[in-house]
């Protein structure tokens, strides 16, 4: 048995360049077992390269990676059954049905068709078991890709934009699947561009920019530390922007799309001052989100 105190993933001063581009630039990261960690960042930030190095698909230039105490590179047949990978391209065996595809994958792990059917049920695809892999809808494709990563019940699961192009309902369905995995004690590393999703799902998020980790913490901690504050929104015309910026506690004022936005660190003081000069009925408040933190961080670095 593995030593459970050992972290799921340890990445130490990892770098990888493609020509002059430093895709991953000195990343150090420890993921404890059972953690759900999100890798965020703009396209080209190095998320996929970092994940692929950890999976053993790419060789780093410098630095080390261990996954559950194993080195992923060169191809390590002792480690491979312990990790599950969903790639951005949905890799399915051509002309097969969903269950035939999963049975084939299961065989690669030395498992029988029970494993395939369990994985199908796990992602709620049992009804589509006999559908050809080319005929299933976008949401089902994503779920089948995740089922492919789960066939062998791995300890560490890598998901690269699993909710990419899904409609809101399909995304919520997938969230349930991911939460279930987290509940079962699996370690999950995932990338996404949906920041509210990362905020809702992740224990911690790492924000990558130009190959570096520019922030790493729980979403809550990141939001409160970034001091992006709260926004008070009211229709344009209800109060003049000049008057608004002179209110007690208001840091700045922006006008956008018919909405006047007051930025503040002191919501109650602003609301009190606002209430004294106008009707509060049409006023909305919006708490800072991970997206605000993200945009501020990426904006500051660019």
């Amino acid at each position: 048995m593995q030593d459970n105190a050992e972290p799921a993933i340890e990445v130490d001063r990892l770098s990888k360049s493609y020509g002059a581009v430093r895709a991953v630039d000195g990343v150090t990261l420890t993921v404890p077992r059972g953690e759900f960690i999100g890798l965020l960042g703009p396209n080209g930030a190095g998320k996929t390269t970092l994940i692929e190095i950890i999976e053993g698909l790419r060789t780093p230039d410098t630095g080390t990676v261990t996954v559950l105490g194993h080195h992923p590179h060169p191809r390590n047949r002792a480690l491979l059954p312990l990790i599950g990978v969903q790639t951005q391209k949905s890799a399915f065996f051509p002309h097969l049905t969903a269950s035939e595809h999963l049975e084939t994958v299961a065989a690669f792990y030395g498992l029988d068709r029970q494993a395939a059917h369990r994985a199908l049920a796990q992602v709620g695809l049992t009804d589509s078991a006999d559908a050809r892999v080319t005929k299933v809808s976008g949401g089902q494709r994503q779920r089948l890709a995740i089922a492919t990563a789960l066939v062998h019940q791995p300890e560490v699961i890598f998901l690269d934009e699993p909710t990419g192009a899904l409609d809101p309902q399909a995304r919520r369905d997938l969230w349930a699947v991911l939460r279930q995995l987290k509940g079962a004690g699996k370690t999950i590393v995932y990338t996404t561009h949906h920041l509210e999703e990362a905020e809702a799902l992740c224990d911690r998020v790492a924000i990558l920019h130009r190959g570096r980790v520019v922030a790493l913490d729980t979403p809550r901690e990141l939001i409160s530390r970034a001091a992006v504050g709260t926004q008070v929104l009211l229709p344009v015309g209800q109060i003049a922007p000049e008057q608004a910026s002179s209110l007690d506690g208001v840091d700045s004022v922006t006008v956008d799309n018919g909405t006047l936005t007051l930025h503040t660190q002191h919501l109650t003081r602003v609301l009190a001052a606002l209430g004294a000069s106008t009707d509060l009925d049409g006023v909305q408040t919006r708490a800072a989100t991970l997206e605000d933190v993200y945009l501020e961080l990426i904006g500051a670095q660019s």
Binding site: G56, L57, R77, L80, V85, A91, F93, F108
Partner: peptide, 17 residues
């Protein structure tokens, strides 16, 4: 060509087969 394009080669490489 197809297995490489669709990442099936990678899928196989990531299994202990």
């Amino acid at each position: 060509m197809q297995w490489r394009r669709d990442d099936l080669l990678r899928l196989i490489r990531l299994t202990p087969a």
